[in-house]
Design a protein around this nucleic acid. Structure first.
Length: 575
DNA sequence: GCCGTTTTCGGCCCGACTGTTTTCAGTCG
């Protein structure tokens, strides 16, 4: 959702880029980048923070705090405006082209007055780059290729799209002789909602067979770079895959390094330096003797840095280092902790599989309880009726406990209307074991109306879970506009859980909203929202997102034993 | 510009690959 933090992050990033382009102090540019990241990921709205609190954000000192305040007060920052006057906005666009960084962008601007991507393409076609220092024939080709890619592909790849090719490549490379370990790392392992590329790591004595195999996969469209230690390819779907091969003893250090994030690694390396050690993808080494002190497993590496093993989903430099040093790292929720799924569909409405199949599949996955929550009558195209719901309930009662003792709950997914009203009257809703309620239309209401709508849903005595709360579809539909602090407070006050919807194009709530909602004492339900048997497996994306929001089993109602869950679902009523 | 159980000054992660300036700068992750 659009927060002041996002605006400030963008502004500081722009300033950092402008410093880099004008050849300013590289460390200064890095300082602004770091502050931008920290503010973008900060759980509290910076527009509500004073100077003192701003400066408590890591990487924000006096100068940046003043610029942030100036921006929030006036809408602009003098220092940024000055740089903007010196450098046309189009020059900054140039550094988005792969292989073209700030130095080359400035050369193009100063020597050829190129100030946009289109002008650059034109200059190359008109052969105006000849003789420019650092720009050979190959560089021209790379730039044109980069512009082409940028135009067709553009943004990052959704998590769900990247996982399949990543797991296929890992499976392929794992089969080769000499493969000691193989896994994906990077933002995919951290379960970010989208990834820039796929990082694959192999531990083996000989790198060549793996490099060759990657280049020859049927899904490989193009080899971008091929070296002795690293190879990059692009798949036919346009996804870049980076493969690194390390000696087997470096497996742990390599996984730590290539899982990132960059910000997390900067922290771990700095800790290493302070301990007279040097951390690289090859291992943790004594600075003086150059002897390896840890490298085989991530656990060893972290232990020698004085840290517990940190789950990949927490490695964003959002406080996990400090928590680890204090021994207060959260025991984040895992897929094994999930006892039940509280939001699923059947073919009675828009699901693909009938009730019996969904229930059998859920039981095979080892769930202890399972809620069937088909749509209610207000989504007219689903053709739900009172009679159908009651008939389904009978069947649910018959199947209760019939598969591996898995208990069944009969629920429904209500539609939250524009004024916060829902499909069925309260006495009919009383017959359900739980009610999920979600937004399915009227996404464009203004902030006040949207906030009131969501708060009213929370205050409804029968609504237990707000499904996919922001309504976003990643890359397609923005989150609705609401005063989320007010919604979070209402959830906490009324005993209404917020969903972490696991569908990879939703991941709703997302990690940053979860972090903030948790501060209000909100409980969460990590649900698959499965419309088919296959969708049940997507729960892992929801668990990953919950981990990124630092949730523990205590925060997640569907990790609780059924008795405790039923108490929560009663919303303070006597059962 | 930020930061401090080495420090209020002098550091700031570090290695791989490409292309080109034949010893290294720029870019990337």
């Amino acid at each position: 959702m659009a927060r002041s933090n996002d605006e400030v992050e963008a502004l500081l990033r722009e300033y950092a880029d402008l410093i880099a382009i004008t050849g300013g102090d590289a460390f200064k540019a890095r300082a602004y980048e770091k502050a931008a990241r920290a503010i973008g990921g900060h759980p509290f709205d910076v527009s509500r923070l004073g100077q003192q609190d701003l400066r408590k954000i890591p990487g924000v000192g006096r100068s940046i705090a003043e610029k942030v305040e100036e921006y929030l007060r006036t809408g602009t920052v003098g220092a940024v405006e000055q740089r903007r006057e010196a450098i046309p906005a189009g020059v900054r666009e140039l550094i988005a082209i792969p292989t073209l960084g700030p130095r080359k962008a400035m050369t193009l601007y100063e020597d050829l007055h190129v100030s946009s991507v289109a002008e650059l393409a034109e200059a190359i076609r008109a052969e105006r780059l000849g003789g420019l220092k650092g720009f050979g024939k190959k560089t021209e080709e790379n730039i044109l290729h980069g512009i082409e890619l940028m135009e067709q592909a553009g943004a990052r790849i959704p998590l769900g799209t990247a996982m399949d090719p990543a797991e296929e490549i890992v499976a392929e490379l794992s089969r080769l002789t000499g493969c000691a370990h193989c896994a994906y790392a990077g933002s995919l392992r951290r379960v970010r909602e989208s990834v820039g590329d796929i990082d694959i790591l192999v531990a083996a004595r000989r790198a060549d067979p793996f490099m060759a195999a990657l280049g020859e996969l049927p899904s490989t469209a193009e080899v971008i770079a091929r070296g002795t230690k690293k190879t990059s390819i692009r798949t036919v779907q346009g996804v870049q895959v980076d493969l690194r091969v390390l000696p087997p003893r470096s497996w742990g250090a390599g996984m730590q390094y290539f899982t990132g994030s960059r910000a997390h690694n900067i922290r771990t390396r700095t800790i290493a330096v302070h301990r007279g050690l040097k951390l690289s993808e090859y291992g943790l080494f004594d600075m003086d003797s150059e002897r390896s002190v840890a490298s085989h497993t991530e656990e060893e590496v972290y232990a020698r840095l004085g840290l517990p093993w940190i789950p990949p989903t927490l490695r964003e430099d959002r406080g996990e280092i400090e928590a680890g040093l204090r021994g207060e790292l959260p025991e984040v929720v895992t897929e094994r902790d999930i006892r039940g799924d509280l939001h699923t569909h059947t073919s009675l409405t828009d699901g693909l599989a009938p009730l019996d199949e969904m229930v059998a599949a859920a039981a095979r996955r080892g769930l202890r309880y399972y809620a069937v929550t088909d749509h209610a009558p207000d989504l007219a195209m689903q053709r739900m009726t009172d009679e159908k719901a009651l008939a389904q309930r009978e069947r649910v009662r018959e199947l209760d406990g019939a598969h591996r003792g898995m208990r069944l709950l009969h629920g429904t997914e209500l539609n939250i209307g524009p004024d916060g009203e829902v499909d069925w009257p309260e006495d009919f809703l009383a017959g359900f074991d739980l009610c999920v309620a979600s937004l399915h239309s009227h996404f464009g209401l203004g902030r006040r109306a949207m906030t009131r709508r969501l708060v009213r849903a929370c205050e409804h005595p029968r609504i237990n879970v707000i499904g996919h709360p922001t309504g976003r579809l990643i890359g397609k539909r923005p989150p609705v506009d609401a005063d989320w602090d007010e919604v979070f407070a209402a959830c906490a006050r009324t005993g209404t859980a917020l969903e972490v919807n696991a569908q990879p194009d939703r991941l709703d709530l997302g990690d940053e909203d979860i972090l903030r909602a948790k501060e209000f004492g909100v409980r969460f339900a990590v649900d698959s929202d499965a419309h088919s048997v296959l969708h049940l497996a997507q729960l892992r994306y929801g668990v990953g997102t919950a981990q990124r929001g630092w949730l523990t089993p205590r925060d997640v109602i569907n990790t609780w034993p059924l008795g405790r869950l039923r108490g929560f679902l009663a919303k303070g009523r006597k059962r």
